[in-house]
Design a protein around this nucleic acid. Structure first.
Lengths: 242, 242
DNA sequence: CGCTGCATTGATGAGTGTCAAAATTGGTGG
DNA sequence: CCACCAATTTTGACACTCATCAATGCAGCG
């Protein structure tokens, strides 16, 4: 039995646009289940033709793309509130996998009903498109990072982005956040080798900007960190919840 | 006076899903103008809050993002049929600029009417989301290229992608296509230096795979080129026209 | 207790970036 | 039609970031 949307723990968070009661009722009709999955399990698989879409209720994941030759690119980190699997609703198949990094709870929708969203509730369709457009924007920023920033700037940029995302979700304590990602994940996200990523993280630590150890990211000086990252800190917009 | 959608030159091309007469009528209502712009002119500007959306009728452009420090990342190359400016309909402002590289004709829509698309013609809203989702998928592929591929593979990959895109649009003659992009554009797209990009292109030429000169890209052996690019050739899906 | 995965460190070198200058092209005006 | 200028392409020499290799340490776990 699927849990009541009106009790959705995410809807109460500041990070999200509040859904109206009528929207909540509508979503309830499309929610087909709530899945719990374990850390390490795949949610969506690159190349497959997934019949379901998900909203992350809790837990963290990684979007990753595998290339011939065993290399892996981490596309982005997935946080609660993210809507995943949209690609398979439009492209023939997923261009990347999504792998859980912690135990997760997912809200499940059938892809076959995607069209109903558009037809019968344009507000929700608009919000789905919001997610696609914002993700596109973010990937553009990531592209600029991999293409133009130095290793030090790249890693600093990632730390800022991850921390800020966690902050708006209330996942931080003071200036630290605990994360399930490994240095290899960071390395594969920034297009750097594991070794060099480790040395770069050390440099950030010695410069008293940020430290990463035992899965805890601590930000000592986010302003200076953003400078190193050659980026500006601006506050996160509220996100619509699917 | 805006030109008639029913005579739209794109709608007849194989590359696109045919619009129904009713869809064409609908689009006609939202089309506010047809713009012609010169090569080199900006269409959308990073950081601005553009009130208009465009479909490219003819001509080529570049999506680019500027960073502090004067560096530039080319996000992607823009072809006829592309729908641009969607980001500004959702994010507060554009995350990148779009710059014409040839004279272009653009079909113009008002952003304020975007919501009407969703409300009154869900099929068209669906198609808009298609564009966002496919672009997101493509950017994921690009990210993997910048992060994981060598310079040689990266450039080969770009040549394959660009050529294939031009091919489905009927812009190729035999195995060549003429393009308005410079080696600096390619370099900034792949995150490489101009000098190294030039040397890499030379290597591809000497390996009899592809040559780039005088703005003409010639593909000698696309199969082998795709091998170097560590990618697979698969045919392009038909695209919906906005 | 010996795995296995992850973090850390040092040594070495390949792949690219940077610098500088020449060659080529295309456009513009005399 | 030629001369000039700006933009782009091409080439060579050199420097440096970052990848690779290898080894160690450390923690969790069956």
């Amino acid at each position: 039995m699927s849990t009541q949307c009106k009790y959705c723990p995410l809807n109460r968070k500041d990070a999200f646009v509040d859904l109206t009661p009528s929207e909540i009722d509508f979503m309830q009709k499309f929610k087909v289940a709530e899945h719990s999955i374990d850390a390490g399990e795949p949610i969506l698989i690159q190349g497959s033709d997934a019949p379901q879409l998900f909203t992350v209720l809790s837990g963290l994941a990684i979007r990753e793309r595998h290339l011939q030759g065993g290399k892996r690119q981490v596309i982005s980190f997935v946080f609660p509130g993210d809507f995943i699997g949209l690609q398979s609703g439009f492209a023939a198949q997923m261009g990347h996998s999504v792998i859980a990094r912690t135990p997760m709870r997912l809200c499940v929708f059938n892809r076959s009903e995607l069209w109903n969203f558009f037809k019968s509730y344009p507000e929700r369709a608009f919000d789905i498109t919001w997610h696609a457009a914002i993700e596109e924007s973010f990937l553009g920023e990531s592209l600029a990072t991999l293409g133009q920033r130095s290793a030090l700037s790249s890693v600093a940029w990632a730390m800022v982005k991850i921390f800020q995302r966690g902050q708006t979700l209330g996942m931080t304590q003071d200036n630290s956040i605990s994360l399930p990602f490994t240095q290899r994940d960071i390395a594969d996200a920034m297009g750097l080798s594991l070794v060099h990523t480790n040395k770069t993280l050390n440099k950030l630590k010695h410069q008293q900007l940020a430290s990463w150890s035992d899965g805890v990211l601590q930000i000592n000086n986010i302003k200076a960190l953003a400078d190193v990252a050659m980026t500006e800190l601006h506050d996160q917009p509220k996100r619509p919840l699917i």
